[in-house]
């Protein structure tokens, strides 16, 4: 399993090496035309996802001029996708370090239920309940890390198991029923309205994406995490503290999923014990799709956010055009395969 990911990455990763940077003295000697072509190829590699995104927006705007290019439609897309973006970014952190967190969907579901139960059934202040919930999620991340690092169980299995346990605990704390009631207005407001017609929840998610961008790409920790993901043995011998980094990544992914759960309850106004697992696959798919763009071969924040939007907008347009429901998942899966295959194909030609 892990080796599969490595292969994917090494394939994608080596695509960066091909050329001298455009404009360097070397490129003049080899001929401007060739250099131009090379830099175009590189641009194409980096900007596959954004380019498709732009094309989709243009095409849908032309085909559906009344309903698609409207502020209302876009704020609607952002409102439904902010939680997916958040979970994708959380799940991406362990992927950067070469580990899987399959419990993110279940942590989301559990947290969504926990905040509802604490607030509605136990009468705790909703913000205090939110804080407790995120803290619980962080503890779940620590447990995951303990199982992976101390019991030496692969993260794939460990988080699959902990996720399964959580799916049972949700039933326990909710009595297997939807928990609903009146949340304070300030809490529910996270999910709708807000400045510019965009709900505060979306701003929270975007702010969080910026923080992630900073931590993963502008702080040494991000570089180290990438190194252990791409070459664990070499990184260990270079003196990197593998255990700390894995601990960090699993705690972040669980904590972020907990936050997403709280946001989900605010948006929905209730907590459903069956919510959660359906977030897992789209979140990981977006992270993988994101790794084909912006910084090909590396999981990255901007690529992941754009990938969530690409898949969402693709679905939005298709459904407005009257495509039946089954089309959307088929579309998502095919996009993922095609994007990864194209990036790898370029490597072979290089």
């Amino acid at each position: 399993m892990e080796s599969g990911v490595e292969n994917l990455e090494s394939g994608v990763g080596s695509s960066v090496h091909d050329a001298t940077p455009p404009g360097s003295p070397g490129s003049k000697r080899t001929g401007d035309a060739r250099a131009l072509r090379r830099s175009l190829v590189r641009l194409g590699e980096r900007s596959g996802v954004p380019a498709v995104l732009v094309v989709l927006i243009i095409v849908y705007s032309l085909v559906l001029p009344q309903t698609f290019p409207t502020a209302r439609n876009f704020s609607g897309i952002l409102t439904t996708e902010d939680i997916v973006i958040l979970v994708s970014l959380g799940g991406m952190v362990p992927l950067v370090g070469g580990e899987f967190d399959l419990s993110i969907g279940y942590v989301l579901g559990f947290s969504s239920m926990e905040v509802a139960v604490l607030t509605l059934n136990h009468g705790i202040n909703v913000w205090l309940a939110s804080a407790i919930t995120v803290l619980t999620a962080v503890i779940i991340g620590m447990v995951n890390a303990f199982v992976v690092l101390r019991l030496h169980i692969s993260s794939f299995i460990a988080t699959l198991a902990s996720g399964t346990v959580l799916s049972g605990l949700v039933l326990l704390i909710s009595n297997s029923m939807i928990v609903t009631g009146s949340f304070p207005n300030s809490f529910v407001r996270l999910g709708f309205g807000g400045p510019g017609g965009i709900p505060p929840g979306v701003y929270i998610v975007l702010a969080f994406a910026v923080v992630m961008l900073y931590v993963l790409e502008h702080v040494p920790t991000g570089r180290r995490l990438e190194a252990i993901g791409q070459g664990r043995d070499a990184a260990r011998l270079a003196g990197l503290r593998i255990d700390r980094l894995i601990f960090f990544s699993l705690v972040v992914s669980a904590g972020v999923s907990g936050l997403a759960g709280v946001l989900n309850t605010a948006t929905e106004g209730s907590a459903d014990p069956t919510v959660g697992p359906e977030f897992l696959l789209p979140a990981l798919a977006a992270a993988f799709l994101g790794s084909t763009a912006i910084r090909p071969g590396r999981f990255n924040v901007i690529g992941t956010v754009l990938s969530v939007l690409l898949l969402a907008i693709g679905y939005n347009g298709l459904s407005q055009l009257g495509a039946p429901q089954w089309v959307s998942p088929v579309f998502d899966g095919c996009v993922l395969i095609v994007a990864v295959a194209l990036t790898r194909g370029k490597v072979r030609n290089a």
């Binding site: 990455e9 990763g13 190194a227 791409q230 070459g231 043995d233 070499a234 011998l237």
Partner: peptide, 10 residues
């Protein structure tokens, strides 16, 4: 290739 460096990083 395994222990010396991370092959896919620059």
């Amino acid at each position: 290739r395994r222990f010396g460096g991370v092959l896919t990083m620059d």
